[in-house]
Design a protein around this nucleic acid. Sequence first.
DNA 1: TTCGGCCATTGAAGCGTTTCGATTTCCGGA
DNA 2: TCCGGAAATCGAAACGCTTCAATGGCCGAA
Lengths: 339, 339
Amino acid sequence: MITIKDVAKHAGVSVSTVSYVLSGKRPISTATSQRVRRSIRELGFHPNAGARALASSRTNVLALVVPLRTDLNLPVIMQFVSSIVTTAREHDYDVLLLTKESGADEVHRVIASARADAVIVMDVEAHDPRIPALRELDVPVVLVGVPADSAGLNCVDLDFSSSGARMVAHLADLGHRSVGFIGSPPAVYERKTGYATRFLSGFARCAQQRGVMVHVHPCAPTFTSLSSCLDKLLLPEVGITGLVVHNEAVLADVVLELRRRDRRVPEDISVIALCPDVMAATQPVPLTSIAVPAEEVGAIAVQMLMRRLAGERSSEVRLLDPHLTDRGSTITAPHMADR
Amino acid sequence: MITIKDVAKHAGVSVSTVSYVLSGKRPISTATSQRVRRSIRELGFHPNAGARALASSRTNVLALVVPLRTDLNLPVIMQFVSSIVTTAREHDYDVLLLTKESGADEVHRVIASARADAVIVMDVEAHDPRIPALRELDVPVVLVGVPADSAGLNCVDLDFSSSGARMVAHLADLGHRSVGFIGSPPAVYERKTGYATRFLSGFARCAQQRGVMVHVHPCAPTFTSLSSCLDKLLLPEVGITGLVVHNEAVLADVVLELRRRDRRVPEDISVIALCPDVMAATQPVPLTSIAVPAEEVGAIAVQMLMRRLAGERSSEVRLLDPHLTDRGSTITAPHMADR
DNA sequence: TTCGGCCATTGAAGCGTTTCGATTTCCGGA
DNA sequence: TCCGGAAATCGAAACGCTTCAATGGCCGAA
């Protein structure tokens, strides 16, 4: 195994000089620096991570807590992870994988044993039981998702509230006056899972401002549940001309079922969804949608961490502006009389 | 920060004694051991990973290379990862996450800098370009998947060849004499991606043995491609009574399209698929299937690694027996005359 | 009573870095 | 010619653990 000693000998300098060349923490003459770098290259030297961690109390590793058992929105999770790993590497950090299922104890262990310098926790819920333990940690922590009490925490997520508002505004701009909402399963709202509630409240608030009538129906991930939602929404007296869907599980069926009921999208009804872009794009009728910007969220999470690691003291909650992609499934509202 | 020194002082023993209590590498009297353990608990001591690694040249970390950009079979990948992380933790190992996209260099870096003791590489292809570099590593490596030349490598995967054979046997036992095969996209076979080819050859070999006629059609992941496959397969003169599907992308459409063409499953045609269990179970007609036993593969991968880390020298290729789950979509072949 | 031998425990030498004075070198100004 | 000081480099002390050789106690056999 090649050590820094070998490099020093090979380059004819002291061990500390090699170290300073590598870290740049002291000025080294260009000549020496180049000679050292050359030796490093020729010998194929890689600094021993353990020794480095021991001496500097920096591991250059960040722990990432991922919900691996999730059955839903795997694509989004993968995008997060992928973007986090990539961004971390750009900052010369490696990523240690922890599962959400194993809880906050594992995070504590990893930090207490100095295996990682910081933590990113994905899939944080409004009243996440892990939060007290995470607060105790005296290393930087970034949460993906926003808990009910976010004081003193670093969080990043899509701005669900303004996403809801944005969708209403989009439909209102197109002249829609009555809009349906197919939501997540009732349990999700009861549990106050946070993002679902925030999306809905942004939706409702904007609708009120714009004078749009809304008809909200949570929907279990079953065909029968969806079917009964649509039964109610499509009653003539309800007269919706737009439909907002926040439920990935039934999204495909919404589209199929509307067609089966002879409602054309978008001629008879405009549909807009909150879901991954691929999902929106691959429906029989490509759907206008807002997606969770997973790549961006991941990258920002890492950047927030890096700033904290660099000494920044403050904490912040970053809510990302929604980006609405128009795929043509939303058009000017038909006049009621036309139906 | 609590160190082993603090524990030693607190327990009134030497530092080395604490170490031996922890590692069990020397006999320690029960009295002392308990006193030490109590101190550890009371002080909340966690051994510093870096120091440990430095002194013992063991990191208790394994590197896991995951294909994060994959769009397909994410569920399977997640199952792998989940099972690998869980099993690794049972052996007191943590998992460092690397992406397939970043290539073999990253693996080399991680090993050369002693960040990890061993490597698991997922999604290995027949002529995987990373293999030469992986062979050079002088740490244990386990591949999930079997490359064309597996000599001297540790590999684990489903036995695709016998899976193909098993499906034919299942259908043959039910009296089917003519069977269709909807395969992966042509490119997959041309690239000799390994598992697809092996599955197909096991299928063909067994069919010949059992005197079953086979009609093989690779299929692109598009509706038109599928449609033309079915056009050919459902010609009266072909007379298939069974259908094997090895193409997750079009599986759902196969079922829908058969129905649209008035072929009932299983009364008119028996269908069996190679796909994740959830996928098979959630079709309109639950499908008899063979699944990649991801949990098992992951656990075995870790176990193989642990044995190598414990000093075992040999290498092995483990092909797991397929497990066929009958969900009722395959029944006794109808007589030709009935049609 | 003495001694060999075993068991439990200890002290100290690393492991490969980083980092903090300390030292050397070199330069310009007096 | 000498000196002060900046720039570049060096030496050695940590960092917290493992592990090896050595020590001390104790027991049973002689």
